[in-house]
Design a protein around this nucleic acid. Sequence first.
DNA 1: CAGTGGTCTAGACCACGAT
DNA 2: TCGTGGTCTAGACCACTGG
Lengths: 260, 260
Amino acid sequence: MTQPLYLQIKHEILHRIQTGDLQPEDRIPSEHQLSKRFHVSRVTVQRAIRELVSEGLLRRIQGSGTFVTNFTHRFSLIEVRDVLEEIRRLGGEPTTEVLLHRRFTPPEDIQKLIEVEPETDVFHVALIQSMDGEPVAYEERFAIMEIYPDFLSQDFSKRSVFDYLASHSVLEDIENVVSAVLADKRMAAMLEIDPDEPCVRVRRRNWYQGQCVTLTRITYAGSRQVLASRYRPYESSANVGSHPALLRTVQNGLAKTGEV
Amino acid sequence: MTQPLYLQIKHEILHRIQTGDLQPEDRIPSEHQLSKRFHVSRVTVQRAIRELVSEGLLRRIQGSGTFVTNFTHRFSLIEVRDVLEEIRRLGGEPTTEVLLHRRFTPPEDIQKLIEVEPETDVFHVALIQSMDGEPVAYEERFAIMEIYPDFLSQDFSKRSVFDYLASHSVLEDIENVVSAVLADKRMAAMLEIDPDEPCVRVRRRNWYQGQCVTLTRITYAGSRQVLASRYRPYESSANVGSHPALLRTVQNGLAKTGEV
DNA sequence: CAGTGGTCTAGACCACGAT
DNA sequence: TCGTGGTCTAGACCACTGG
C-alpha cells in the first residue's frame, strides 16, 4: 500500500515544517528542484504544493518562490449549526413549537439590522426548539418578503425554517455575532430556565445578491447549553494517510455545561 | 484578460449549481465529457473539479461519478482569535496586566480538564487584556510542565502567552467551548463591568502528540464585547475572478454590542 | 464489461520578480 | 536575463463501481 507520490511529497514538506526544519517565512525548494529530488514530474510536485497552499501552510509568489506561512497564528473556529440538525445528530428527538408566524412591520432595531426601508413589512417566525421535550433554544427569524413568497404557508413545525430559507437562496455572505445575555422572565419561562440565567446568543445575518435577506437570533437555553467544537488545525503527518481529503475535520455539538 | 480555462470551467459548474440547474445529489458530467465539451485536457477539468471538491460543493466517488453536495446544510463558522492580535488588528493599543504567573497544583476541575494525574503541578498564568486602557478580556491559561520548561521565566506583559505557547508545539487538536457566564464581583471589578453582567466565555483545550497540553479560559468583558465574524460560504461566480485563491474569506472582530 | 475517477508523465509556453 | 510559479496538453495505466 504505497501512497501516491504527491502525498509523499506533501508529507515530506509537512514533516519538515513540523520539525522546525522549515521555519515560517522560509522559502521551500522550487518546483523544479523538488521534481528532480523526488524523480517526479513538475505537475505532481505542484499538486502537493497546491494542497498545502489551500490548507494555509504555504504561500506562493509567482516569480519569487513558495514560502512557509506563519500558521501558528491561525485562529480557532467554532461552528454554529442548525439547532434542529444538531439535535438529530446527537440522537435526540427534536420538536419545534411555533410561537409566532406572521408578516409585520419591524421595530427600528430589526429594520436597521435587516437593512430594509422604514415601514417595510418583513416575515417573522418565533419558535422553541426542544430535544426530548427539553427546550434547547429560542429562535427568531426575520426574512424579507421578496424572495420567500410562500413563507406564511409553510408549516415550520414540520419543516425546519433553516431548510426552507436555505432552499430559496444561495448565500453569499454570512455574519455571526455571539454574545451573552440575561434571560428575562419571558425568555426564562419559554426555555424553562431560571430568570437571570446567562445565555449564549447568536445573531446571524445572511446576504444574497448583495442584499440582506434574513436575520436570525438564537438564544440557547442558559448555561445548560454551550457551543462546542473540536477540530484539527491541519492534519498532522501521522494522520494524513488515513483520511487525506479531510482537512479541518470539525466535530461540533451542543453540550451540557460542565466546568467551563 | 481571459481567465484560465480551469476557472472558466469552475464558474460554469458553479453557475449551474447556483441557478438550480444542478441540484444537490445530481451527478455532473464526467471528466471525459467535460474535457470534450470545453475542448481541454482532462487534467484541466480535474483541476476545476478538485477545487470545487475542496470547497465542499462537489463530492467525487471513484468508479461512480461526481455529485453536487447539499451545501445548504453547511454550518456557520465563528473565529476565536488571540485577543491581543485582535486588538492590534482593530488599531487599538493593547496592554497586558499579569495577575498570576506561577506553578501550582490545580484543583480537581482543572486537573481533569487538562488531563493530568492528581497532584501534578501545572503552570498557570492569569491576565487582563486591555485595549486603549479598557479591559477587554480576562484570560487564564494552564499548561503542562513537560513541554514549556521556561514558562516561569517569560515576561507575558511583553510577549503574548499565545505566541509563547504556539512556538512550543504544533497543535493537533483544538477544542472550543463557548458559554455564557455571570460576572461575579471579582470578575466584574477586574473587567470594570457591573456585577452580574453576562459575559461570553471561551474555553479552549489544545492537544499535542496525543496529550492535552494547554487549557485556556477567556472571559470577555460583559456585553461590551462579542465575537463577530463575517465570511463567504463560497465565492460566488461574480467574485471568483477577482480573488480566485480566497475561499472562505473570514473577517472577524471583537465588536461593541449593539442590538443583538 | 464499460465507464468513472485517481494518478502520473514529459514536455510546452506564459507571466512575473529579481538582478 | 534567468529562475520562479501559472497554465496546459495528449496521452497513459490503474482502481473502483455498476450492470
